[in-house]
Design a protein around this nucleic acid. Structure first.
Lengths: 203, 203
DNA sequence: AGAATTTTAGACAGGAGCGTCCAAGACTAG
DNA sequence: CTAGTCTTGGACGCTCCTGTCTAAAATTCT
C-alpha cells in the first residue's frame, strides 16, 4: 500500500490508473475493487493510513522536552533536527507533497492534515517555547508567533535546500549532509539571537 | 487567457478539458486548436506568459534599494511588505500554486521558475543584504544564508496566515489586514534583532 | 458588395480509464 | 478429498477527452 502512495505522489490522483497500482502491488486490479470498491475510497484510505503514521512520527519528534530547563540553543538545535528528519522521512515528504498537489482539489484533505497532524504538533511546540520563555531562557512574549517563526525558519531551510520540496521524494538528501546541518544550525542561531533575553523586547 | 490559468490552477492540468477553457473564454474549442494545436502547448504558453508577468512584478517589488543607507528595520519592513504583496497578487499566487501542483509531474516547470524568476530575484536580495551589511547596518557574514532566512520568514508568515498557500487563490486576504501586517513586522523584527550589530557574531 | 480568411458548431474516430461480470484457478478448512 | 471462499485474467459497456474534419456562418479586407 506504500506503493499506492508512491504512485499517487508521482503521478497525481487523476493520472494514476488502478492498473498502475495493481502492477505495483502483488494483487490484481479486481482485488483492489473487492477491498475498496472505488478509486476514491482507495485514495482516501491511503491518505488516512499514512496520516496516522505521520502523526506518530511527528509526535515522537516533538515530544521530548526534558524535565530540567535546557540550554535553548542546544535544545532547539536538537528539536529542529528532529523536525527536519521527520520532514525528510520518505513517508512524510510524500504525504506532504500529495496533500499539496491534491489539496486544492480536495479541501477536506488539507483540513484533515490541519486537524489531525498540524494542530497537535503546533500546540506542543507553542507549549515548549512558552516553557523556555517562562524559565527565562528566552524572551518571548507571544509563544504562538515565535513558534510560527521557528517553523518558518526550519521549514524554509529544508525547503530551500531540497529543490522546492519535491527533491525529498525522488532524491532524499542524506540526513547527515553537513551543508544541511550547517544551514539548520544557522537558522536556529538566528532564532535564538533574535529571542535572546537582554535584547530589546521581542515585539 | 487568464481564464485558462484560473482553470488549470483550480482543476489541475489533467482534469481541465479544452471544452472547459473554451467555455470560459470568448473563443471556441477549435479556435484554441487552430492557435496552439495542442493542449500541452496551450498549457506551456499559459505558463510562459504568466511567468514573464510575474518576474516583472517581483522585479518591481525587490528593486527599490535607496542610494542612501536606510534604517534596516524600516527598509526591510517595506521590502517584506512588497514581497508579500507580490505573493498575494492573484496572478503570482495562482502561478505558484500551479507550479507546485504540476511541478512534480513536469520537472521543467520548476526549472523554468528557478531560472527565470527565482534566480534573479534571489541574487538581487542577496546583493541588498550585502550592502546593508557592508554599510554596518547589519552584521551578516553570509548574505546568501541571511537571504534564505529572510525569505523563509516572510514566506512562512504569509504561508501560515493564508491556509497553507491555497487560500490566496480562492479568498485573497486583504493586503491591509492588520493581523498580516503585525505578523510581518514581527518576523522582520526577529530578523533584524538576530542580525543586529553588537550581538554575538552571526554564525 | 464581393472575396478571402477566420471562426464556429457539430460530428466523428481513436484511445483510455472506471467499474462490472464471469469463469477458471488457487487457496483454506473441515 | 471436498466444499467454500478468495483471487485472477480477460472481456465488456460505458463515459469522457483529445484531436480532426467539414460545412455553414461571421468577420475582415479590398
Amino acid at each position: 500500500m506504500a506503493a499506492a502512495l508512491e504512485l499517487f505522489v508521482r503521478q497525481g490522483y487523476a493520472s494514476t490508473t488502478l492498473e498502475d497500482v495493481a502492477a505495483a502491488t502483488p494483487v490484481s486490479r479486481q482485488t483492489i475493487y473487492n477491498h475498496f470498491g472505488d478509486k476514491e475510497t482507495l485514495f482516501l484510505s491511503v491518505i488516512d493510513e499514512h496520516l496516522s503514521a505521520t502523526l506518530e512520527t511527528l509526535r515522537e519528534a516533538t515530544a521530548h522536552f526534558p524535565s530540567e530547563l535546557p540550554d535553548p540553543e542546544v535544545y532547539l538545535n536538537e528539536l529542529a533536527r528532529r523536525i527536519m528528519a521527520t520532514f525528510l522521512h520518505p513517508r512524510t515528504a510524500a504525504l506532504r507533497l500529495l496533500l499539496q498537489t491534491e489539496g486544492p482539489r480536495n479541501p477536506q484533505l488539507t483540513q484533515l492534515w490541519r486537524q489531525r497532524v498540524a494542530a497537535p504538533v503546533w500546540s506542543e511546540l507553542i507549549g515548549q517555547l512558552a516553557r523556555l520563555a517562562h524559565g527565562g531562557a528566552l524572551l518571548i512574549d507571544d509563544p504562538a508567533r515565535a513558534a510560527g517563526h521557528f517553523v518558518a525558519l526550519v521549514n524554509g531551510t529544508v525547503w530551500e535546500m531540497t529543490e522546492l520540496g519535491t527533491f525529498a521524494v525522488y532524491h532524499p538528501p542524506e540526513l547527515d549532509d553537513p551543508a544541511l546541518d550547517a544551514a539548520l544550525r544557522s537558522a536556529v542561531g538566528l532564532f535564538v539571537r533574535g529571542y535572546a533575553p537582554g535584547d530589546r523586547p521581542a515585539g
